[in-house]
Design a protein around this nucleic acid. Sequence first.
DNA 1: TATTGTTATTGGTAGGACCAATTAAAATTT
DNA 2: AAATTTTAATTGGTCCTACCAATAACAATA
Lengths: 237, 237
Amino acid sequence: MKKKFQNIVDIIGGMIESGDLKRGERLPPERTLAQSYKVSRNTVREAIKTLAEKKVLITILGSGNFVAESGVELLRESLNNTLEKKKHRLNDIFELRKILEPQIASLAAQRIRPETLDLLTATLAQQEEALMQDKSTRKLDEQFHRTLAKATGNTILFHVYEKLQDIFSESRAEDFQIPERKQVSLSIHKDILGAIRDGDSIRAARKMKLHMDQIRKIMEKQMPKTINPGRKKTKGA
Amino acid sequence: MKKKFQNIVDIIGGMIESGDLKRGERLPPERTLAQSYKVSRNTVREAIKTLAEKKVLITILGSGNFVAESGVELLRESLNNTLEKKKHRLNDIFELRKILEPQIASLAAQRIRPETLDLLTATLAQQEEALMQDKSTRKLDEQFHRTLAKATGNTILFHVYEKLQDIFSESRAEDFQIPERKQVSLSIHKDILGAIRDGDSIRAARKMKLHMDQIRKIMEKQMPKTINPGRKKTKGA
DNA sequence: TATTGTTATTGGTAGGACCAATTAAAATTT
DNA sequence: AAATTTTAATTGGTCCTACCAATAACAATA
């Protein structure tokens, strides 16, 4: 049974998308909407609340509900929705990680604090132990990268990265955790940590880039059907 | 006047954060909550809806409202909330842009399509015109970078970038749009577009990096009080 | 003309009632 | 006694009416 207010959300959303309601425009009052669509005012309010939560509508007490300036775009481009729908695009995610991760390693090498360094060391030890016992290293792997992102001291970067990790880890089933990858990951993690410990940001970035290429290669082996085949390439990096 | 349901949101949120409500646990029924906090059931439902929209709670008809598995984390780490609270951290944003933008330019140079190239050319023409007439070039500047991000063909990257642009543009008041910056921006935009037109991803990335350094320098001049002073640096990039 | 006061409109909250899905308990059957 | 069916209680979903508070539009006044 579909919830009723969702219908109203779709209707209002459709009107915005089709252009019947333009940016900044005021919606009919809640009572009118309720009467128009033969639902209670509560239902209308729930629908409006849903859209307001997505920042598609803006509610002003005593004045009315308005289409947000960026309402049209947000409707189909809101980060949460879009990212979830695109979560299967592993290639895109890897490409983005390949951009972010080496720089994260670089920044971490410049700014990491001793206690964080100890945490990373401990994490790798756990990872090694898990590898011996043939346990899953997924969470430990995530923790390693997550800690690095935090060690950059850039909270924006950290939270963007966290969001991406969420999506990435959803797409990264346990299937991919073949022994080969585990071994390779642990090995290069040690290299990266070593570089960071030395404060060598260049080497840290280079090792991380290598890491990205490795796991990508392994995943491609696991997943024969290429998702994003042959874009045109010219010169350059 | 603060809205009443927001109080209930804070109360429930607080209970989750403090551990009184653990992951997966069921909330008291709506009627009970309403009575407990001396508000109407409507208000409670609005509060619950707000949290459900953030995926902190999950409502199951006939069963109850439950704390989502990742509810605790989402409560204080949801991208929207966190990023908005940190929007003042211009340094962090610039640092992230400096990571992303050059790579975006690089990818765009590899994959851009002719019609997008035309669009960018037109955008720069508009920007030049606006500069002549001493009008604001902010939106055109945003459009240039936004189009580049889209031209990468990486939808994840595009949407992440868009979200960051939202925050960035909020933090970037009209004050910063001094003539010097406008002129410098336009000039380097031309350089970048030229490199992209040639398909030279390396040059595009280098020019973009230069661009980032330039606008950052200009903004620092405008804003004497440094936000993120002197982190320790060692060797490397 | 400008200011003030009134009124109508709008979203916010309250409290009631009933429906539908779910769960728990009781009755029934095996 | 165990398994199944039936019944009752609980819970979220929707609807309704009423009233409050903020806002905007208008009228009255200086």
